[in-house]
C-alpha cells in the first residue's frame, strides 16, 4: 500500500516570528523530527504544503524556504481565519502536522541560462523568496543570469524578511529594488506602486523570464508593463491561490476550468492562464 496522502507528518514549531509591524503576518519555522521525514519531503521553490494546527484544522501555504536550507521549512502566514489564527497563537515547541510537498513548482530547469525578474507585492513574497534563495545558492548561482527582485509593500513595516533584504542590498549576485506605496519617514529608497516601479526599473526582456506574485490588482497592472517591455506570455509566470482542502486534485474546489490549482498548479505561465476561463 502506498503512503496515505491524507496523513500529515509531525513537525516541531521551533520559531514563531512576527514579521510585520501590523502583527498580521508570522513566519513559522518547522523542524523535521527525523532524517527520514526530511528525505521524503523533497520539494522545489513554488510548491506548497497543508499545515495542520490540530484542534483548528488544516490549510495550504506556500513554502517560504528553499530546498537548499536543510533541516527546516518555513511558512509566512497572514492571520485571516481559524487555522492561521491558531498557528499565530501557537507556542514554540508545539507539534504541528504537514502534508506535502504539493503542486508544481517554478520551472527552475527552464530558467537555466536565463535572467530572472522576480516581482512581488505584499506578503505574496514567500515562494518568490524560496526561488531567489535557491538561485543564490552557490551550487545553483552559475546556472542563472542576472537576478532582479522588485519587491513592494504598503509601508516599510510590512516588508517580509527584512534582515535578508538588507543582506541582498549589498550582495553583488542579486539586484534588489524595494518600494513602498507612499513616502514614509526614514525611507530613502523608491516610492510608488509595483507597476510604476517596474516601468522605471525597466528590466530588459532579452533572454529573461519574469515571475510575478501579489494581489490581483498588482498583477493586473504589472502585466501590461511587462508586455510593453517585451515579455511574451510564455515567459511570465505566476503562482495562484485557491481555497483547497485535499491538495490532491480530488475534493473539487480549486479548479479553473479543467485544471486543479492544487495539482496542476499553483504555478502557471500567463500563456497557460490565457487558455483557461478567468475564474480565479
Amino acid at each position: 500500500m502506498e503512503q496515505n496522502p491524507y496523513l500529515p507528518i509531525t513537525m516541531k514549531l521551533i520559531k514563531n516570528l512576527c514579521e510585520t509591524e501590523d502583527k498580521l503576518i508570522n513566519t513559522f519555522t518547522l523542524e523535521f523530527l527525523s532524517k527520514e521525514d526530511e528525505e521524503n519531503f523533497k520539494y522545489m521553490p513554488g510548491q506548497f504544503a497543508e499545515l495542520s494546527a490540530y484542534g483548528a484544522g488544516e490549510a495550504p501555504f506556500g513554502i517560504a524556504t528553499s530546498p537548499t536550507e536543510p533541516g527546516i521549512i518555513k511558512f509566512s502566514v497572514a492571520k485571516v481565519g481559524c487555522v492561521s489564527n491558531a498557528l499565530h497563537l501557537m507556542e514554540e515547541g508545539t507539534m504541528v502536522g504537514v502534508r506535502g510537498p504539493m503542486g508544481n513548482y517554478y520551472p527552475m530547469e527552464e530558467f537555466k541560462g536565463k535572467n530572472l525578474v522576480i516581482i512581488g507585492g505584499g506578503f505574496a513574497f514567500t515562494t518568490l523568496r524560496s526561488m531567489a534563495v535557491y538561485m543564490l545558492d552557490e551550487k545553483h548561482r552559475a546556472d542563472y543570469g542576472d537576478i532582479t527582485v522588485i519587491y513592494g509593500a504598503r509601508n516599510p513595516g510590512l516588508l517580509l524578511y527584512k534582515e535578508e533584504l538588507a543582506e541582498w542590498e549589498t550582495n553583488p549576485n542579486i539586484n534588489l529594488v524595494t518600494t513602498i506605496d507612499r513616502p514614509a519617514e526614514g525611507w530613502t529608497k523608491r516610492v510608488g506602486f509595483i507597476p510604476t516601479i517596474t516601468e522605471e526599473v525597466a528590466p530588459s526582456s532579452v533572454n529573461t523570464y519574469a515571475v510575478v506574485c501579489g494581489p490581483p490588482a498588482m498583477i493586473k497592472y504589472t502585466l501590461p508593463v511587462l508586455e510593453k517591455l517585451g515579455f511574451p506570455p510564455e515567459r511570465i509566470y505566476t503562482s495562484l491561490e485557491m481555497r483547497m482542502k485535499c491538495g490532491l486534485g480530488i475534493c473539487g474546489r480549486c479548479n479553473i476550468g479543467p485544471k486543479y490549482v492544487c495539482k496542476d498548479g499553483p504555478v502557471f505561465s500567463m500563456a497557460q492562464l490565457k487558455e483557461l476561463p478567468s475564474e480565479y
Binding site: 491524507y6 495542520s52 490540530y54 484542534g55 483548528a56 484544522g57 488544516e58 485557491m242 481555497r243 482542502k245 485535499c246 480530488i250 475534493c251 473539487g252 474546489r253 480549486c254
Partner: peptide, 27 residues
C-alpha cells in the same frame, strides 16, 4: 468534499464530509 475538524477537549478527528459546488462558501 470538505475536510474539517471535530474536537472535544484535547482529542479530535479530521473528517471528510460531502460538499458541493452549488454552496456559496465552497470556494
Amino acid at each position: 468534499f470538505d475536510i474539517s475538524e471535530e474536537v472535544h477537549k484535547n482529542e479530535g478527528s479530521r473528517v471528510r464530509t460531502w460538499d458541493a459546488c452549488m454552496a456559496p462558501l465552497f470556494t
